[in-house]
């Protein structure tokens, strides 16, 4: 999605990227929301958010199942769902802009389709797990939004977005670029097929695959250790090595300086107390000394 913004320029031909990103943002909102709500509905049903605890849920959660499937198809860019249209336009924009970006985007699209359907097959197909109590469909308050969003995911791709949103208020026509559309659908379908082969039925294939990929699989399994890195950065670096010194510096140096002005003033006040001795001869001495000092001031100035 951010990619789209990245390839977008402003105005003219280049405005395509801008429009595409807005369009994708819009459709993305639909199906991503749908996915999250669907996930929520599943978690609600099985009281877990680990995929190992799920399987064969299509029987128990028919509505969730269908809507989730729609969301997955949309995100994989299968026509005629909305994701297809918006993603297509991003790819077109990317192609205009930079071939390498297009390639990356292209592969990512395939991966997306793969992991989404891996999720889908794992959760809704596969074999039943030992549920503590039989999962049941979520109440209407949860399914109605699901259905509405599914509806939107299907049809929002037909909105003539390119004439509504432009970066320079100039409409420009886009046509289906089949040279881009067909490969992109194909790679989506490929991803789905991979997932189907690997995860539709319980099989050893994924195990083998994961072993053959070795480190990469472990790394991906752990989300490339992003969480750990994040925690390391916040907890260790920001907290301990930046915030703590900053807080200390603020307390002791900056504030210490401000308080120090006050303390020094008090100290000086204490030091000069001796001048006020109460003895009249000292006062007389200071008086005359003061007059002489004034004379000095006058001479010097």
């Amino acid at each position: 999605m951010m990619l789209a913004l990245g390839v977008s320029g402003y105005g003219g031909e280049e405005g395509l990227g801008y429009m595409a990103s807005m369009f994708h943002l819009f459709t993305h909102a639909m199906f991503k929301a749908l996915l999250f709500l669907g996930a929520g509905s599943i978690i609600h049903a099985v009281h877990s958010n680990l995929m190992q605890d799920m399987g064969g849920l299509r029987k128990y959660l028919p509505i969730t199942h269908i809507t989730f499937l729609i969301a997955c198809l949309t995100i994989s860019g299968v026509p005629p769902f909305s994701g297809f249209f918006s993603k297509d336009e991003i790819l077109v924009a990317a192609l205009h802009h930079n071939k390498l970006l297009f390639a990356v985007e292209f592969i990512v699209a395939g991966l997306t389709a793969f992991y989404m359907f891996r999720l889908y097959f794992n959760v809704f197909w596969g074999k039943d797990r030992h549920y503590h109590h039989t999962p049941h469909e979520s109440p209407l308050t949860m399914t109605i939004p699901l259905m509405f969003l599914a509806f939107a995911s299907i049809f929002s791709g037909f909105i003539p977005f390119h004439s509504l949103v432009t970066s320079d208020k100039m409409h420009f026509a886009t046509e289906m670029n089949f040279a881009v559309a067909i490969p992109s659908v194909l790679i989506g379908l490929l991803g789905i097929a991979m997932a189907w082969i690997l995860y539709k039925k319980e099989s050893v294939a994924p195990e083998k695959l994961s072993k053959s990929f070795g480190i990469l699989y472990t790394a991906t399994y752990n989300k490339f250790y992003f969480d750990e890195i994040y925690l390391f950065v916040t907890k260790k670096i920001i907290f301990n090595y930046i915030s703590r010194p900053v807080a200390w510096f603020d307390r002791h140096i900056v504030d210490g300086f401000m308080v120090g002005i006050g303390t020094v003033t008090e100290k000086v006040s204490y030091r000069i107390k001796g001048m006020q001795s109460g003895q009249l001869q000292h006062y007389a001495f200071m008086f005359v000394a003061g007059a002489l000092a004034l004379a000095l001031v006058m001479i010097l100035m």
């Binding site: 006020q276 008086f287 000394a289 003061g290």
Partner: peptide, 10 residues
């Protein structure tokens, strides 16, 4: 005025 003020406080 300082320094002719010493009597003041006392």
């Amino acid at each position: 005025l300082v320094p002719f003020h010493f009597w003041t406080a006392d």
